[in-house]
Design a protein around this nucleic acid. Structure first.
Lengths: 225, 225
DNA sequence: GCCACATTTAAACCACAGGTGAACTATGGA
DNA sequence: TCCATAGTTCACCTGTGGTTTAAATGTGGC
């Protein structure tokens, strides 16, 4: 096969919007399941499966089966490098006011993401409610357990019961900083929604903080939106 | 527009085979005309024009009009970087490294280009045989006229007779410096070929300096290849 | 003034690539 | 054992996006 042709097949592979979104999701280096990738990319499971198959066949992704899940990740670091380079081409003009505080955040699969999530996670760490023990795991301190209990989340119980990664740092590529993912991150978003501190929007990963949510967030974490 | 969306539009832009081929052509840093890009990409002029328009609109390419040609080049070096990274993902064995050998130069449409051309133009300016009067025009000094006469080029006559831009500075993308284009630049290449100081290669814009050419160039301009 | 060439624009066409729905495999939990 | 969940495969259909055909714009050379 011609080198030209190989290049074009490669770019066509990366260029398809759904595939591009899935690849973007993997940029933080985590291995994600087919379902998670499908959800992020706004695609049906079948569609995602087809796309992932092509990406694996092209040796852009590698797949690992664990139980009934299949975890996809980049086949080699160069793939991530190339995608980073591509992502850096996106005009960055509209990353306004990380500090000015937006009521808007977004959800990342099932937990809070974006600069609000980063700010929250930073505050949790700063107050030593959360500590980053390894590169891939947050640990909830005793004070943290109490804090989560106050919020209405039984962190301890959750850690014992859940098979899912408990408190995983999730790198937000647009923010270049970690925020809280995993089961705890998901529980937190669920709880915040239940408290009506944030509301989901229809057909979008965007979530918006209510006025009450903003007040409470400032009160319990000192985070001003 | 969402960051995700911007990324996908970007990748979709790069992912289209014809566009990808054109971008690949530009990877060596040269600025190419729409026609040349169309030819290389195996596309009709109209199709190429449409694609190029999109790439320019997305600020991946920049375009510069020169006469009835339009030269396309990367809008910023990061674009080339990203494409390099993508190209490096192609599994096949790499082709031999581009000739950094100084005997090699290349032609730009009809005149000498590349770092040799830049060196020559610099030398001409340094010895005040050529002066850059406006941003778009070189002027041949009296000493310059004599120098060109010695070379076998009647610059004065040419300037009177030719309607074509006489001595235009031509920006070489890969060198980031101007070199001598226009009628005078074309005449110079023609003359150098006639003198057998440089030889054209078949099916390529590459030209190579002969041993004699290298000696002479040093003698009359002090340019060492 | 003319013609030739390079390139762009507009409109009609159509192929291919991705989405969908249904059916199938496999794993885990009761 | 049964059922729910995760994921894949297949066949069909639809719509986007690129190509084509045609005509217009603009520049250079005579």
């Amino acid at each position: 096969m011609d080198v030209d042709t190989e290049f074009t097949t490669l770019t066509a592979l990366i260029g398809e919007p759904t595939r591009a979104r899935m690849l973007l999701q993997l940029l933080d280096g985590r291995a994600l399941t087919a379902g998670e990738l499908a959800c992020h990319a706004n695609a049906s499971p079948q569609a995602a499966s087809g796309h992932l198959g092509k990406l694996v066949a092209a040796e852009l992704l590698a797949v690992e089966s664990q139980g009934r899940h299949r975890y996809y990740r980049f086949a080699r670091p160069e793939v991530a490098d190339a995608l980073e380079a591509l992502a850096s081409l996106v005009p960055t003009k509209q990353q306004p006011a990380p500090t000015s505080g937006s009521r808007y955040a977004r959800s990342c699969y099932d937990h809070l993401a974006g600069h609000v999530a980063v700010a929250i996670t930073q505050a949790l760490c700063q107050r030593e409610l959360l500590t980053l023990t390894t590169a891939k795991e947050f640990t909830v301190t005793n004070a943290g357990t109490a804090w989560f209990t106050d919020l209405g989340i039984d962190a301890k119980m959750m850690q014992q019961r859940s098979r899912r990664a408990f408190a995983r740092p999730c790198l937000d590529w647009s923010e270049r900083r970690h925020h809280l993912g995993g089961a705890l991150g998901a529980a937190m978003l669920t709880r915040l929604v239940a408290l009506d501190w944030v509301r989901r929007t229809a057909n979008s990963r965007l979530v918006v903080f209510t006025g009450e949510g903003q007040r409470q967030l400032y009160q319990i974490l000192g985070v001003r939106l």
